[in-house]
Design a protein around this nucleic acid. Structure first.
Length: 308
DNA sequence: CGCCAGGCAACGG
DNA sequence: CCGTTGCCTGGC
């Protein structure tokens, strides 16, 4: 079940995995292991010049493996079916984007399992990336299935039903704190309201977002992350505090005209301001706004020299 | 010890 | 509609 792929492509798995959009991936030697629902995904990079492959922008050979079998997962998960030439052409109309596309050549948006994505970003509120990782790892260890690959122990991501049946206290024991209530409400909404997360792939951005935001604990930002990273809404543009600061310094003119007040109060995000800013920036970047967000995010996080 | 971190809902004006 | 407040938790 190993598929080989020769790429002279705009794709850098390591940079992509490290761009803050996925949380359950870990490196071991020349391999990366990731959890996607109940699958373990594995990438092995057999390029002697592992450290230089970004510069050469050519990956001699990568092996993609999955357990259980998930044929062609690499195309799906890393969005290798996206027309990057068109996306780049589209975004390059913006001066900063045109720079970032070259600077971070190979950075991609990834597709995630919808339920895992939703729980992941529900855990992201008011915390940091190491903690999010800690919460998700604990949840998987407690509620997922144990699998062994290459002599390493992995835990798959819990099923909706399994978390639905868990008590708040059990969920809380995974260091999630007050987010346990949100996690619980997500599973309840999916089970009781019998709406299928996966079906939202086929809804419009607006309809899908409306559905997501009915759930207790899911606001604008988390909904936009789920839409972009797991529900095929490349026009979603999640705005967190980092992106907000970036918009203020690099896209002030785009935002400003849409706001009726001129002072800087918009730096604090209320629901209404989120919508105004979101509308303005999505209108500006267009149908690939999500890619613009990812490039911008990677740029500012690196400039801040943050530890991921 | 106090403060902070990739939001959100609840509440008063 | 706006602003404020509290929230679990681990790291500093």
């Amino acid at each position: 079940m190993i598929s080989h792929i020769n790429l002279n492509s705009k794709f850098d798995p390591e940079m992509t995995i490290n761009s803050g959009q996925v949380f359950l991936w870990q490196r071991s030697g020349n391999s990366w292991y990731g959890i996607y629902g109940d699958h373990i995904l594995k990438i092995s990079i057999y390029d002697e010049k592992l450290k230089n492959y970004v510069k050469s922008s050519t990956i001699d050979m990568i092996d993609f493996y999955s357990f259980p079998t998930f044929d062609g997962w690499e195309k799906f998960v890393f969005r290798l079916d996206d027309d990057m030439d068109q996306i780049f052409a589209d975004l390059s109309k913006d001066v900063l984007m045109s720079k970032l596309i070259k600077k971070y050549f190979g950075l991609r948006v990834m597709r995630q399992d919808p339920f895992q994505c939703m729980i992941s970003f529900a855990c992201s509120s008011n915390t940091n990336i190491p903690m999010i990782r800690n919460m998700l790892t604990s949840l998987a260890r407690k509620f997922g299935n144990k699998l062994i690959l290459d002599g390493k122990i992995f835990y798959t991501f819990p099923k909706v039903k399994r978390l639905y049946e868990a008590s708040i206290n059990e969920i809380c024991s995974c260091h999630v704190g007050y987010r346990a209530k949100t996690i619980k409400s997500i599973t309840e909404e999916i089970i009781k309201e019998s709406f299928d997360l996966d079906d939202l792939r086929f809804s419009s951005y607006g309809k899908a977002k409306e559905q997501l935001m009915k759930i207790y604990g899911i606001g604008n930002k988390i909904a936009d992350c789920v839409l972009l990273f797991s529900l095929e809404k490349l026009d979603a543009f999640p705005i967190d505090v980092w992106i907000l600061r970036a918009l203020f310094s690099h896209y002030y003119n785009i935002i400003e005209t849409k706001l009726s007040y001129v002072n800087n109060t918009w730096k604090k995000l209320t629901t209404n301001r989120y919508l105004l800013i979101s509308d303005a920036i999505r209108n500006y970047f267009g149908k690939y706004s999500g890619y613009a967000q990812q490039y911008l995010y990677y740029y500012i996080r690196n400039n801040e020299k943050r530890k991921w």
